[in-house]
Amino acid sequence: MTDHSVLIIEDRADIVARLSDAINVTDGLTLVGCASTLDHGLNLLFDLKPRILLVDIGLPDGSGIEAVRACAAADWQVDAVVVSIFGDEARVLEAIQAGAKGYLLKGADLGQIGTDILSVLDGGSPISPGIARHLLAVVKDGGTSSVEPGLSPLTEREAEILQAVARGYKRHEIAQQLGISAGTVGNHITSIYRKLEVSTNMEAVARASKKGFL
């Protein structure tokens, strides 16, 4: 099995170093490059064609969201993962909308970072209660209004899972409550992410972000 190549775009050197360490200690991942600006990062993305991109949103010369979009439009398989300090909803949601497969916390343990990256590769998108609540708000608004036809309504099960996540329950607990496997719960969450991603309606996201701040 060949290692998955990883590219990092992050402007803080210490954090880059930390992420690099995490990747190096994780089996199955190889760091292929680092960039501290969006410009450089986009160049490296197309030169190196990595399997995974770890990208910070707040870069000195632009938003990491652009790199996420570039991944979504790339002609090779590449998963964008947003590197966030706190996993704050507004920006994570925007990234997901742009096509990010998930997010990971900068401050987490080395082992945790590696696991998070691998679980994204496996299709297990991370989700926090705050993000779940925002997803519910976005999709609910989109589902009941005809002005946003891009948003597919959630299935009953998906809404149920999002509600449980929003209340702080973990995947294995939800799986237990619903009598399904933790993997199935993960699949549902990934499906919810995809539903959000197919919608390119920025207005919905803007509103969701606003809601987060209000």
């Binding site: 706190f86 704050d88 926090s128 209660p129 705050g130 609540r133 929003a166 702080g168 701040f213």
Partner: peptide, 28 residues
């Protein structure tokens, strides 16, 4: 503590979500 403050501001209209975020922060 900073995360707690940010979460409190972002999720003040849903205390169960806020508690959920607290759980996520403290789980480690």
């Amino acid at each position: 503590d900073l995360a707690l403050m940010l979460d409190s501001m972002e999720n003040h209209d849903s205390l169960v979500t806020l508690l959920g975020m607290l759980r996520t922060r403290l789980e480690g």
